[in-house]
Structure formats: structure tokens, C-alpha cells
Write a protein that binds this DNA or RNA. Structure first.
Length: 207
DNA sequence: TGCCAGGCCCTCTTTAGGGCCTT
């Protein structure tokens, strides 16, 4: 069975910093499940990392130490989230960042997942090479995607990343007259040299 | 107290350096 790029879980973490290897932890997870191009389920939870977060992270995310003091533990939330992921493939904006935190948090509770990651940022760099930059907010505004909620909160960012992802799939489908795109094609597209993008997609997507 | 990462990608490249993205 070829997995479809339009049936995935799109996720976003807010964290205490940039590197789980340096001891940083997740403080919020937001995710949407897309099936056949439609959002069918949402998941959102704060999680208590067991320590205070910096003033920078409080102002960057709007998540406060007070909010986290009342939140369930990372262990509890990540266990539920592993169930939400199920066997779906995963998408995130700058996926290498979210993958590191997903792997680190699931390893702590001895949990695993089967799906593979694709990166909306790497795909966007190929589809919109002339965009001013490839930050999530810029790409959302460029594509006139509805902004629902605050940037830098997990569920809002996951929802907007999901809409960006669907918008990129629609752009490819329109240009190459394809009906669906295998997940593996999006993974390979993210690593295709910019000059070869049209040749690659034209060769692999037959109408 | 102070400081911290990593993968991708471009170029004045490959015996390297630095910007972009994510928090």
C-alpha cells in the first residue's frame, strides 16, 4: 500500500528551548489528523516539564509557569499523544526540530511510533523559492491561509502547518494534473535540488 | 553565572563558513 500525503498527522511542539540533548523539554503539543485532505481530529495539551521555564519562552509562546504548574506531566500527555499518532505519517514545519523532541519525549516513556516524517519547510523552499523567507507565518500569509489563534502556540501552528501542507499538495496536483501524491514523493521532493523539482514531479506524478 | 543544537543549503565550496528555520 502506498501511503497518501493527504492522510497524515501534522504536529507542533512548544518547548523550553532548542535542544533535547541539552535537557530541553516539551511544554505543549498540538496536532491535527488529516484524512484524505480533511482535518478529522485535533489534539492539544500543555505539559508540565517539572521545572520553571525562562522568561523568554513565556513571552515567546504566551505559556506561563503558572499555566504549566496546573498541567499534566509530559509522561501522561505523551502517552495519550502516541495513541493519537497511531500509524500515521507525520508532518511538521522544520520537522527535524519536532522529530528530535518527539523522539526524546517518547523515549522517556519507552514508547515508539511507526510513521515517517516529512518537512513542510523543506517542501516550501522548493515550491516557493522566491518567498521572502520560509517561516511558517510568512508562508501562511503568502498563501492567504486563515490565521486562527496565535502563532507560537502548538495547536494554532499545527493547524496552519496542516493548511499550508494541503495548499502545497493542491498546488502540485493542479500543476501536474495528479489526483493524489504518495507520502514518499513529498519526502523525496524535500531533498530534490531546486533546479530539478519540476522534472522530478513531472516524472513521478502521472495524470 | 553563563551558555547551549542540528540539518539543510548556498557560495567567495568540498582542507569551510555562515544564514535559515524551529523554541
Amino acid at each position: 500500500m502506498t501511503r497518501n500525503a493527504a492522510s497524515v498527522v501534522v504536529l507542533d511542539f512548544e518547548t523550553t528551548g532548542l535542544s533535547p540533548d541539552q535537557g530541553d523539554r516539551a511544554i505543549e503539543i498540538g496536532a491535527v489528523r488529516i484524512e484524505e485532505g480533511r482535518v478529522t481530529e485535533r489534539f492539544q495539551s500543555l505539559m508540565n516539564p517539572g521545572r520553571r521555564i525562562s522568561g523568554f519562552i513565556e513571552s515567546y509562546t504566551g505559556i506561563t509557569n503558572k499555566m504549566l504548574a496546573r498541567a499534566p506531566s509530559c509522561k501522561e500527555v505523551m502517552h495519550d499523544f502516541a495513541g493519537f499518532i497511531g500509524g500515521y505519517d507525520l508532518v511538521a514545519h522544520n520537522a527535524s526540530f519536532d522529530k528530535r523532541f518527539l523522539d526524546a519525549e517518547l523515549q522517556r516513556i519507552r514508547c515508539d511510533y511507526r510513521g515517517e516524517f516529512a518537512c513542510s519547510m523543506l517542501v516550501a523552499r522548493r515550491l516557493y523559492p522566491d518567498a521572502p523567507n520560509h517561516k511558517l507565518e510568512t508562508l501562511v500569509r503568502l498563501n492567504r491561509i486563515e490565521v486562527n489563534g496565535d502563532f507560537h502556540r502548538a495547536l494554532s501552528d499545527a493547524e496552519m502547518t496542516a493548511n499550508l501542507w494541503l495548499s502545497m499538495l493542491a498546488k502540485i496536483n493542479k500543476q501536474f494534473r495528479s489526483r493524489s501524491i504518495p507520502f514518499g514523493v513529498m519526502q523525496k521532493l524535500a531533498k530534490t535540488p531546486k533546479a530539478s523539482v519540476e522534472t522530478y514531479l513531472g516524472g513521478v506524478l502521472k495524470p
